[in-house]
Every structure is written in structure tokens, then in C-alpha cells.
Design a protein around this nucleic acid. Structure first.
Lengths: 147, 147
DNA sequence: ATGGACAGTCGAGATCATCAACTATTTGGT
DNA sequence: ACCAAATAGTTGATGATCTCGACTGTCCAT
């Protein structure tokens, strides 16, 4: 067993997590958003998620989404619209202003991450993409424990 | 330029971030901690950080640390001790209970991540460790912009 | 129909997070 | 040695995040 290697891998994964967490905090703050608001806007960028979907994506309770969406709606960044197929669900649609702001956020993230890899040879980039893809999908089916 | 590859890499990095974020949320909740509390305890596991160091590690204002440490101290998980070399700084020391709880948290994280990679050949693990190391250090010196 | 599952909201209470202002201590320049 | 500037931590005020239990309304399978 390569126990030392495993520990090292875990350490690296968490280190990268911390780094991206800091990047998100700095970028959202720069735009006058909280990290949660920025992430919610990004999730609503190309689909029109329901509150329940947003709760799953943000790893929080659905009752939290109500206030989160309330504040963003009060700022004119999104609107609530009823789902035509299921009258229980309400879907979140970005306004033009919300599109612009979330686009700005995504641009900051993209350029910061991209410039961090600008000096990498494309073979290493491809390797990393391949390994990250396997890693993420491997973790996505993580063992759930009973509540 | 491999613009498509860059976008794909950014997408993968964020996907992994989301996954680890969810893992942290679930693990800390299981132990009756908030994610911030769990992270703070882990940072205090082997060193005795000052409040300012904790603020930098948690990417938040130093005034936030006061209340965070207050609540953990009230639960008997850590103590404040003055730094002998600089009477301005107070350092955080975990109690035995705090050690146990943060150890439990770290164990949950470690085993979940490790089992996610248990089927990987060691050559791929080594590749991923090497690439993540480069990536994280490359991002750690990220370009700061003026406030 | 009707009972159970599901989506969203509300109210209460705790935590997280920031800002301005303050005290105490350290440091460096003169 | 002195004093101004920088630093570490706390406090109070304010707003945002997050969860829990309870509630309404809708869907769906029996």
C-alpha cells in the first residue's frame, strides 16, 4: 500500500481546494457579492434552476435558498418565474444585469485560473484534465452514510 | 492557443472544488460543526496559529476570528494562550477534546478521498500528485489586483 | 377522491462576515 | 530615548448565511 502517497494526494487536493476557495472569495468580494451569491448566479447562467436544484448545488438546505434568492431579486439580478410544467416549482431567471455581473465574475475566475496555467505545455494540461475528470467523477459517487 | 482546452481545465478545477466543498459540508455537519469551525480546528491541529494567521487561512477578516474562536472555546475545543514572544498575539491551542474532534473530521475526509482513489494505479496517482503540486503552487502566486 | 411525497415559504435562533473604532504592544526613524 | 506608524486583537453594530420545525399548495399513485 502506498499510504504515504495517499496522504500526499489528499493534502494536494485540499491545498488546491483552499486556493480556489480564496480565489472565489476575492473575486466575489471585488464585485460586491458574497461567494454564495456569486455561485448561485453562475449556476443560473445557462439553465434556469429551481430552488431545490440550487440547494443541492450549493450544498445547503432549501429554506436557505429563499432568502438568498430574495436578496438577489431585490438587487434586480434575477427574477422568479413559475415552472409551466409543475406549479410547485419556481425557476430562477437572470436579468440582463445579473447576466452581466455573473459573466464578469466568471471572466475573473477564468482569466485568473487560465493565466496560472499559461506556461504549461499542452500535454501536461491534457494529462491534468484527464486525471481531474476521473477524480471528480470518482468522488461524485462518494459513499453516503446514514443520517 | 488551445482555448477550448483551457476552458475545459477551468471547468474541471471548479468541478473538483464543488465536490470537495460538498464533502467538507457533509463531514462537518455529521460531527456537529460548521465547515468554518472544522477548518479552523484542522488548521490548529499541528501548529498553534494566531488569530491573524487563521484569518488568512480562512480567507476572512480578522474580526471574524474573535467570535469563531469564542464559540469553539465555549464548547471546550480550544484555549487561548498569550504568545511569549509578542504580547500582542494570542495563540490557539486545541484541547484534548478539540484534538479528538478535529482528528475525527480529518479521518472522515481522508478515508472518503482515499477510497475514491483506491482503484487508481500508482503511476496515475503519482502523476496527479505531481500535476496538482505544480498547479497549486502556480495559483498560489496569483496576480493580486489593486483594492 | 385521498393519502403521501414533494416544492417552496415563513419565523425563530444561531452562526458567519464585515466595517469603524478602540486598546495595547511592537517597531523603526530621528 | 522618544515618538509616530504599524500591527494584533477585541468590541459593537449591521447584514448575510444557515438550519430547524411548521405550514401551504401541488402532484401522483392507489
Amino acid at each position: 500500500m502506498a499510504a504515504a502517497h495517499e496522504d500526499e494526494l489528499v493534502e494536494m487536493l485540499i491545498g488546491l481546494f483552499q486556493e480556489i476557495d480564496g480565489l472565489f472569495a476575492a473575486a466575489s468580494r471585488r464585485l460586491g457579492l458574497t461567494p454564495q451569491q456569486a455561485q448561485l448566479l453562475c449556476f443560473a447562467r445557462h439553465r434556469q434552476p429551481s430552488s431545490g436544484e440550487l440547494a443541492a448545488l450549493l450544498h445547503c438546505d432549501k429554506t436557505n435558498i429563499t432568502g438568498l434568492v430574495d436578496r438577489l431579486q431585490r438587487r434586480g439580478l434575477l427574477t422568479r418565474r413559475p415552472d409551466p410544467d409543475d406549479r410547485r416549482v419556481t425557476r430562477v431567471h437572470l436579468t440582463a444585469e445579473g447576466e452581466a455581473l455573473s459573466g464578469e465574475f466568471q471572466r475573473v475566475i477564468d482569466t485568473t485560473l487560465t493565466t496560472g496555467f499559461s506556461s504549461w505545455p499542452s500535454t501536461e494540461r491534457d494529462d491534468l484534465i484527464r486525471l481531474l475528470s476521473s477524480a471528480t467523477s470518482g468522488l461524485r459517487s462518494r459513499p453516503r452514510q446514514a443520517p
